[in-house]
Structures are given as C-alpha cells and as structure tokens.
Amino acid sequence: MKKILQYWNKPNHAAYLMVAPAVIVVCLFSIFPMIAAFFLSLFDVSTNLATWNFVGLGNFQEAFADERFIHSWAVTGLFTVFDVPINIGFSLLVAALVSGVGIRDKILRSCYILPLICSSTVIGIMWKLFLNPNVGWGIYSLSKLGFPRIAIFSDIDLAVYGIIFISIWRGFGMSAMILVAAMQGISTSLYEAATLDGANKWQQFRHVTLPGISSTLWFLLITRIIGSFQVFDLIYTITNGGPAHSTETVVSYIYSRAFQEGSELGYSTAMSLVLFGAILLVSVFLYGRMILQERRDGGN
C-alpha cells in the first residue's frame, strides 16, 4: 500500500492522475465523435439514417465547387479580420485602464462584462429591436444625431458589420476581464523595481505588464481566432444568414444544410472537416509561435 502511494506521489506519475479525468472526458465526448465524423463524411446519409451510400471523397469535391460554401468562407474571413484585432485591442486598452482595485475600476469592470449574462437569444432579440429603424430606441437616437435611419440587419452590405459590432460588443469585456486577472497576477515588486529605475507608465506597461500577460494574450488570440472561425450563434439569432446569404458564415451554412434545408449529414460533416483542417493549420502555426516565445522568455 505504501509503495503504491509512493509510486503515485512521484511528480511525473501523479501528473497522469491529474490529467486523467479531463483527458478521458475529452477523448470520449470530443475526439471519439470526431473520428466517427470522418467516416460520416465519406457517405451520403439519408434523413432517417436508414441508407448509407459510400461516396468516398465526393462530398469534399462537392464542397470545393460549392459557391455558397466559398462565399461563406469570405464572410467568415471578413468577420475574423475585424473581430479578433478589435476585440483584443479594445480589451487590452480597457484592461490597462481599469485593472486597479478601486471602486471606479470595480464598477466599470462589472459594466463591461454585463453582456456575459445575456444569452445569444436575448442578445439577438435585444439588438434586433434596439436597432429597428421604426421602433428601436438605438436607431431613433442615432437619427437624432444626424445618422440615417437604416435597417442594418436587412441591408446586404451592412448586415455583416452589424453582426461584427455586436460580437465585439459582447466579447471585449470578457477578454478584458481575463487580461485584468492576468495583470493582477503580476508581482507588485516588479512595478516597484521599474519605478525605482525611473520607468514611466508606458515603459512599465511595455516592459512589465506586457511580458507578464503574454501567455494570456496568446490564449486570447488563439481562442478568439478559433471562435471567429466557428461563429454561429449570433448569426443564428439575428439574421439567420440573410439577407441573401450575406451574413452566412461557414458554420451557419453547415448548420442550414444539416438541419434546415434537408438533412445532408454526410455533406455537412465533410464541410465541417474542411473547416476543422483550416482551424488546425492556423492554430498549429500560432501555437508554435507561442511555444517559441515562451522558450525565449524562459531563458532570461
């Protein structure tokens, strides 16, 4: 008995016990279904799952020739290009300004994370009515300030920017909260040392705060990009891909082919796998950069 305890108390053995529960859950409920998805993508599956026709890579060929699929990539790319940098930029700025422990910072922080308590359904109906050109208070007030009264979510050119705005509106507070938690983890002695060296606020931020939160920034960057590639729920509750597919992202299109316009489970799964491949490429690249930087910083 004592031997067993001793064996599992070695750091490199205890580590297995520590990762086991999480790894088992992820394997059973994410990785196993993922492997099953590969098989599903090779078939044309009927609605009731009764007939399975093997089509090999036919579903993938179909996807790359599917104009709606290509277009959904353009929409997703546009979304990512705006959402990720603005979200992280704003949250970094906000976090740097409200990372204190005073009452003002406390109140402001609570404000910024308020969207977190609203479900995407609530956010959807909220903004649809708030920006409704006839009865929405938001558009009404903007029109008083001289802005035109436009129906943002039914405008082919503007709808996608409306969604991007709401996504940033919802997300930047959460990113800021994560960054604040990281900033408060930085030892105060580092700031004291920097002040003694005569560093001003900006130099402190640049040489103490930024290195101190770099692993958290990487976390945000990677998860935000993955999240943007998978953006779905806001679009589902606000425009459902319209008008004229102008806000249809990759996952929206996959969802509609799987559940709304006939259930082409095989084809939808094949498209999801293309998305997965793209996300994998981007993340492996970013993850590699992160490891490189952690090694470099670990050296000094």
């Binding site: 750091p11 580590a15 990762v19 993922m34 599903l40 999801s272 993850y287």
Partner: peptide, 27 residues
Amino acid sequence: VQFKGKNVIFTILMASMMIPFQVIMLP
C-alpha cells in the same frame, strides 16, 4: 510537471479544441 507523453497528449487536446461543436454534434 514533466511527464512522458505530455506534449503528445497536450497536442491532441489542442487539436480537439479546434473541432467546431457542429462537427461532432451528430456523432
């Protein structure tokens, strides 16, 4: 903690983070 297979396990976990829920939803 340093342990055998750490990087392999972590990479597999990372890979599963990239799976959109909609991909694995049906399986």
